[in-house]
Design a protein around this nucleic acid. Structure first.
Lengths: 128, 128
DNA sequence: GATACCCCCTCAAGCCGCTTGAGGTTCAAG
DNA sequence: CTTGAACCTCAAGCGGCTTGAGGGGGTATC
């Protein structure tokens, strides 16, 4: 299949596929008249990459997982990559939750105490 | 005060201050012998910018807030910027929460059913 | 007056993970 | 044989900075 078909099947944009090839995440496929030709294995590999990216793994994490998947070792290392990633996600989640609380309370306070007042006095602009 | 002092007082790096000036977020300060000289007003303005950035406002959002702060209007527009930003934060929060759940369940399932097994069979690599 | 040392300056490029654009080629249909 | 979609390569752009190269300013000490 050609690149457009692979793109559609995996929900990836065509330039992104070429980009992944360029950075060595996907193998360089066979060519026919200069055009890239992919097979079912490429679909599987790219689908995996996309799923990882949706899970917010970095490109380098994906690269690690791909190489672990390739080799004949046990999956404990892959589990460790996932667990570490999970820890990162949880850190971000906590930060974002704190952020949400802080902004929400600013908005609430503005509504309660200064809505309609002069902008420069608004709680949203408090620097403290 | 010179740029290094401003940087320390606001917890900003020196190049970041110069960058903010370059993109027009901070005014161009007076110079003494070619070196930037700042005053208390610059500290306040930069501190506000930093607080916004910690709150994950984009540079453009900060720019809007700064201009609203400057003018003599009511704070309802600022409140609207904040409320919209809050909505964005909440969307991200929901996504991240879903992500956390999904990855956590993969890790748990790996521990339960395939830990130590062959990497290629691990649930972490399931593409479905 | 010279030296040492830190802070400052400008300009340019690098980071991530793509996307966008320009300008040209290949393929399938009519 | 022509059209038009899909493909190709190469380069630059996005946000929000950071990093690096190469040089100037300010002050304390010898």
């Amino acid at each position: 299949m050609r690149i457009g078909v692979l793109a559609k099947r995996t929900g990836t944009s065509v330039p992104t596929i070429r980009y992944y090839e360029q950075i060595g995440l996907l193998r360089r496929p066979a060519r026919s008249g200069g055009q890239r030709i992919y097979d079912q294995e490429d679909v599987r590999r790219l689908a995996f990459v996309r799923r990882c990216r949706e899970f917010d793994y970095s490109i380098e994490e994906v690269r690690s997982l791909l190489s672990l998947m390739q080799c004949e070792k046990s999956c404990t290392e892959a589990r460790d990559v996932a667990a570490e990633h999970l820890a990162g996600v949880r850190r971000k989640l906590a930060e974002l939750k704190a952020l949400e609380t802080a902004i929400a309370s600013l908005v609430t306070e503005c509504d309660a105490s200064c809505a309609g007042g002069l902008a420069s006095d608004c709680v949203i602009f408090q620097t403290a």
